[in-house]
């Protein structure tokens, strides 16, 4: 990958991770409400707007990244976000990393590596 593509990829990873974790925080803040009330509470959560803001930038970085690399290759390196989101879920929300979860996520990550390797 060129330095330009690497820069777009890293920026995308930061924005994606911040976005995912913000959405989870917003979801937890509206967890007790159901139906329309749930969506109203979500809309009032600042985390939701942080997440949306992060995804707007992710959108631009991803589009730029994909203009430099093939789609399959782009998805391969872009999937490193899986690890940062999992660690963020553990750190911020105390989500357990059970052996089954770790094994399944590792298998998915390995699969992603193979897809990218097979593309090269």
């Amino acid at each position: 990958m060129t330095w330009q593509a690497t820069l777009f990829w890293l920026a995308n990873m930061v924005c994606d991770t911040v976005g995912q974790l913000s959405f989870k925080a917003a979801s937890l803040s509206a967890d007790e409400a159901d139906g329309w009330d749930h969506w109203k509470r979500l809309a009032q959560s600042p985390f939701l707007w942080i997440g949306i803001f992060a995804f707007v930038f992710e959108f631009i970085f991803w589009l730029s990244f994909l203009s430099l690399v093939p789609l399959a290759m782009g998805l391969f390196v872009g999937s490193a976000n899986m690890i940062t989101v999992m660690l963020g879920g553990r750190y911020f929300f105390g989500e357990q990393i059970t052996p089954w979860r770790a094994g399944a996520i590792s298998l998915i990550a390995f699969g992603v590596m193979l897809v990218g390797w097979g593309h090269a």
Binding site: Q20, M82, V85, F93, I105
Partner: peptide, 9 residues
Amino acid sequence: APVGPLFAA
């Protein structure tokens, strides 16, 4: 669902 496994899936 928890965000880690959901995002991975």
